[in-house]
């Protein structure tokens, strides 16, 4: 099956700065692709290249198997997008801003504005000028502009910015519904792995312009580190006793013995028995799974995780 969204060794260089470097991504129909990275990692630059707003230094981008070309307006007919902070015409109301988008997208159905206002729960603000909207409602207006024409492809750059927790859940459920029931392909960038992993089907992590990790969310869960954490009243003796029994361990900065041996992790009761019999009863014994934040930081080789 041909990918709906594709980049082929795409790069964007600004002088010596490699904002995006040889990034190849394939997103299939109906997938929600979470594009993760820190600020300045290259997420927005990649999205701008996907939308034809900037030209790649090398490589190509494709949407629906067509090479992205700023001169071909037809290719944007079924693409909805939101890039960075969604700004609108400040002196126009929410409804007027959406009416402009409706006309520029050649949508004949005048009800589409009402529908998208209801969908994004903007009814109370439809006559409010864009300049008077809160950040959260500006974000909703931006999403409304991206969704007004029921696109097949949604490219969203940090759409959760400024939304309150309820709003984040709402948008998450909306995107899940669009992908799952309508077959919409969603490409969504974020810097919060924990949030994205809740609804994305696949995750790509970009760092310093390079795609450093790509996997399904299920695979990513399996890639997370698991370790057995132990605390006793005599940590040095405990570590020594474990070593004598062929169980490698180390004492972390937090003063916890960490064991990564898969056999020990799968049968912690054996460790407990060993320590009790050795006169070193554990006051803490638990299997610890690496959280998503630590996984993300480890992948991009930053403080907070190990390579």
């Amino acid at each position: 099956m041909q990918p709906v969204i594709q980049t082929e060794k795409i790069s964007k260089h600004y002088g010596r700065l490699k904002a995006v470097d040889n990034v190849s991504i394939n997103v299939q129909k109906g997938e929600i692709y979470g594009f993760l990275g820190l600020n300045g990692a290259g997420k927005t630059t990649t999205i701008r290249m996907l939308l034809g707003m900037i030209s790649p230094t090398s490589g190509n981008a494709f949407l629906n198997c067509k090479k992205v070309n700023a001169g071909n307006p037809q290719m944007w007919r079924n693409v909805g997008y939101l890039v960075e902070v969604p700004y609108s015409y400040p002196d126009l109301t929410v409804r007027e801003n959406l009416e402009i988008v409706r006309r520029l997208r050649f949508i004949d159905d005048v009800k589409s504005v009402n529908n998208v206002i209801s969908l994004l729960k903007l009814n109370a603000y439809e006559e409010v000028k864009a300049k008077n909207l809160s950040l959260g409602n500006s974000q909703r207006l931006g999403l409304a502009k991206a969704l007004i024409h029921n696109p097949d492809i949604l490219i969203l750059d940090e759409p959760a910015n400024g939304l309150d927790p309820a709003g984040i859940v709402e948008i998450r459920e909306l995107l899940k519904d669009l992908a799952g029931n309508e077959g919409v392909t969603v490409f969504i960038s974020s810097h919060i792995l924990g949030e994205i992993s809740r609804f994305a089907t696949r995750i790509g992590i970009i760092h310093d312009g390079k795609l450093v990790h790509e996997s399904s969310v299920d695979e990513m869960v399996n890639l997370r580190k698991v370790s057995l954490h132990i605390q006793t009243h005599d940590m040095e003796s405990t570590a020594k006793k474990l070593g004598e029994n062929g169980i490698p361990s180390n004492i972390t900065d937090e003063g916890i013995i960490e064991i990564r041996d898969p056999d020990a992790i799968s049968k912690p009761e054996k460790i407990a028995t060993l320590l009790v019999q050795s006169g070193l009863p554990p006051c803490l014994l638990k299997v610890e799974e690496e959280d998503l934040e630590a996984f993300f930081l480890r992948v991009i080789n930053m403080k907070g995780g190990e390579k």
Binding site: L51, P73, W76, L104, R105
Partner: peptide, 12 residues
């Protein structure tokens, strides 16, 4: 107003 990006990927 930073609305330029809304005019760049449209059917127009």
């Amino acid at each position: 107003d930073r609305t330029i990006k809304d005019l760049l990927a449209l059917p127009v």
